[in-house]
């Protein structure tokens, strides 16, 4: 396989006396969907926040396209091409789709010394990008609050792709969604991957992960069990690893294998 876009080596992150990450290594390649699985509190969020420049690792090394990198601010990560779509914080519901789409990257039109927000361009691009993703807007000035949860995730993903993300980190994009919306988001992930973008898909739902994932890394209590290719691992094994093995097997037995 070619050189990975991002390599995270032995990342450790301590918050005071709490060890949130105790040496996690993951690499992300272009055009793959890398699923990061783990139960609540496994350190998934801390890990992706380290990747996206929100937290600085206590120990460990991050290589971006082979070069060591230290993000001071989330902005640095965005400029390098690492885009993160957070579950609840992807969009601002009170604002229009096109204002959201270009938030932080507003197109500018110059009139002498005055720079104006180029609404025409923003509206046009927004409509085109939304159509590509299969979302029909009433108009670019429609508020995001009128969109469904899945559509909001899709807008956020389309936004990241449009602004040249090389790595797209999705923080539990499907956890609050219905069946149909989940399917839409998963197919969006598939489209994005086909464009050569590395996708990091964080979830605790093994079925969603198996549907689009190429490789899987399971986090448990701040550690990783290593990374497996799709054909090397079964959903049951992933489930077991996420829950820490033994206990879930017992639980599952008593529930008749429904978990």
């Amino acid at each position: 396989m070619s050189q990975p876009i991002i390599q995270m080596k032995n990342i450790e992150k301590h918050f005071g006396s709490v060890i949130a990450l105790a040496g996690v290594s993951v690499d992300i390649h272009a055009g793959e969907c890398h699923c990061l699985l783990g139960d609540n509190g496994a350190g998934k969020s801390t890990f992706i926040k380290t990747m996206s420049g929100v937290h600085k690792p206590t120990k460990g090394e991050i290589l971006f396209e082979g070069k060591p990198l230290n993000f001071a601010r989330p902005r640095d990560a965005i400029e390098a091409g690492i885009a993160t779509v957070y579950q609840d914080l992807a969009m601002i519901p009170l604002m229009s789709v096109s204002r959201n789409f270009f938030m932080g990257n507003e197109p500018i039109k110059k009139f002498g010394p005055i720079s104006m927000f180029d609404h025409e361009y923003a509206n046009e691009v927004t409509m085109t990008e939304m159509r590509k993703m299969g979302i029909n807007l009433r108009g670019p000035d429609q508020a995001v609050g009128t969109l469904s949860g899945g559509e909001r995730q899709t807008v956020a993903i389309a936004r990241a792709v449009h602004f040249g993300a090389k790595v797209l980190i999705l923080d539990e994009p499907t956890s609050a969604l219905g069946v149909r919306q989940t399917a839409n988001v998963l197919s969006t992930i598939d489209k994005v991957r086909a464009q050569g973008i590395g996708v990091v898909f964080i979830t605790h739902n093994v079925r969603h992960a198996m549907a689009v994932g190429d490789r899987f890394t399971v986090l448990n209590r701040g550690k990783t069990y290593g990374t497996a290719m799709k054909d090397e691992v079964s959903p049951e094994e992933l489930q077991d690893m996420m829950a820490g093995g033994q206990e879930l097997a017992t639980l599952e037995g008593s529930l008749g294998g429904t978990v």
């Binding site: 914080l89 601002i92 604002m95 204002r99 938030m103 990257n105 507003e106 927000f117």
Partner: peptide
């Protein structure tokens, strides 16, 4: 407010400060 980049930042800062920070506002 309506015709500049800064105006969009004003809306974004009040709409959801954290979401705005994540995209670099």
């Amino acid at each position: 407010l309506n015709r500049t980049r800064f105006g969009n930042w004003i809306f974004a800062s009040g709409g959801n400060a954290q979401a705005a920070r994540y995209v670099g506002v």
